[in-house]
Design a protein around this nucleic acid. Sequence first.
DNA 1: TCACCATTCAACCCAATGGTTGACTAATAT
DNA 2: ATATTAGTCAACCATTGGGTTGAATGGTGA
Lengths: 110, 110
Amino acid sequence: MVTHSQNLDRIFRALGHPTRRAMLRRLSRQEHTVGELAEPFRMSLAAASKHVKTLEQAGLVRRTVRGRTHYCQLNPRPLAEADEWLGSYERLWTKRLAALEALLRHPEKE
Amino acid sequence: MVTHSQNLDRIFRALGHPTRRAMLRRLSRQEHTVGELAEPFRMSLAAASKHVKTLEQAGLVRRTVRGRTHYCQLNPRPLAEADEWLGSYERLWTKRLAALEALLRHPEKE
DNA sequence: TCACCATTCAACCCAATGGTTGACTAATAT
DNA sequence: ATATTAGTCAACCATTGGGTTGAATGGTGA
């Protein structure tokens, strides 16, 4: 059994690396093969393949194998989960940002 | 110079541990000392103190030292940053979830 | 002054991450 | 048939992460 908390662990950790965020960015526009995902980076294909795997294990990427090529597509659901978690804090930062904005607008009221 | 991407790295990684998320949860209700933050966990104070430090380095916690006790308060700004990043994917998952919901409502249309 | 308390620091341990290379598997193209 | 291509796997390496313990720092209270 994998708990919700463990889900969040994997999701947030997967998002915590620039290579993987860049991969997600590309996948948000269209499906790509592992090779295509790897191409922009100065790292071995094996390394990139590992990144894809951790995205997959976080549920962020779904892979369908056709012949020898693996097609990856973004599964945005876990992003929604992460967003939901953040959502419970939204009230806090909007309050904070509103206060900041007010301060910028009327500095004399300090 | 610390880039925006590195900021996101630290933020997402900080969120990728249940202990730290629990600490943030508590801090979202009120300020707490390091000792108070550590108390609920079955780990040494030193270990908890490290978690606080990584939250601080991600910018999620601000610390003010008064005498020998360190008071921590949540700084929600980086959460807003993370949310902003996720926001650019929101269109994707709402579309997806809407499609799913429609499917559940009218399964015959498959 | 002296004991105590809140916290960090330093050294250490083990497991996980992020990368490499080389071998392997299996599908495709010539 | 053979060479090439897509991708994984396994072994390895260095760094980081998460935990421990014991000592150090520096306020606080009697």
